[in-house]
């Protein structure tokens, strides 16, 4: 069974289209790395200046929930990669199933985040001057970092979920197969980058020593 896909007219053929798309996507990922990079640099500077604030702030986070979210995201990356693998092997049902698992893992991640956020908002553990928990007012510094870093990351997870849902619809319509996995690959690259950033965020925010 051949998947019908015609490369856009300004490309020589499908492989030309694929390499151009992936090139563009990697450049986009570069801009993402630099955007998150700014936050990481700011984190490094403030953590160095006020280590005790970061240590005290991280005690308000539940490392068990953070670990659960790390495992869920890693698993979703694994199934994302597998969905491409199965599409290339022409096992289309497996490919669609892997996309559903990836989507589900992303949803679990956001649900856990929702509970973490609502708990913190309830306790007044908020950024900067909004911080209203008993104790040091300066702890707001830590939560400025916590909310901006996990917030930017979370919005990427939401964007990734929307894209994966689009892939699921196309996958059900049998749009992908051995000859055409490009949309799976491009969304996959984005999803893996989101996972990659979380790999750093987890120890930096939850496991401060």
């Amino acid at each position: 069974m051949n998947v019908k896909h015609h490369a856009a007219h300004h490309f020589r053929d499908a492989s030309h289209e694929a390499s151009a798309s992936k090139l563009g996507l990697w450049i986009f990922l570069c801009t993402e790395i630099l955007m998150f990079g700014g936050l990481f640099v700011a984190y490094a500077i403030y953590h160095n200046q006020y280590p005790e604030i970061f240590l005290a702030g991280s005690k308000f986070l539940d490392w068990k929930l953070g670990s659960l979210n790390t495992l869920v995201l890693l698993l979703s990356s694994f199934t994302m990669a597998l969905s491409i693998y199965y599409a290339q092997k022409e096992k289309l049902t497996y490919s669609t199933m892997c996309l559903w698992i990836t989507f589900l893992c992303g949803v679990i991640f956001m649900v856990v985040k929702y509970f973490e956020y609502s708990h913190k908002i309830h306790d007044g553990l908020l950024p900067g001057e909004l911080f209203s928990h008993a104790g040091s007012e300066n702890l707001g510094l830590y939560f400025s970092f916590y909310f901006s870093m996990t917030g930017l990351h979370g919005s990427h997870v939401l964007a990734g979920l929307a894209l994966i849902f689009w892939l699921i619809i196309r996958s059900h319509k049998k749009h992908f197969g051995p000859g055409y996995v490009l949309p799976l690959e491009c969304v996959g690259l984005f999803w893996h980058l989101v996972d990659l950033i979380w790999i750093y965020l987890f120890p930096l925010l939850y496991l401060v020593e």
Binding site: L23, W26, I27, L29, C30, T31, I33, L34, G37, G38, F40, V41, A44, I45, N48, Q49
Partner: peptide, 21 residues
């Protein structure tokens, strides 16, 4: 190469801010 270029520029800002610290 594209990925490493991004990481390179990130390393520059990290390096120079650590000099300051």
């Amino acid at each position: 190469v594209i990925f490493l270029v991004g990481v390179f520029f990130l390393a520059i800002i990290f390096l120079f801010s650590s000099f300051d610290i």
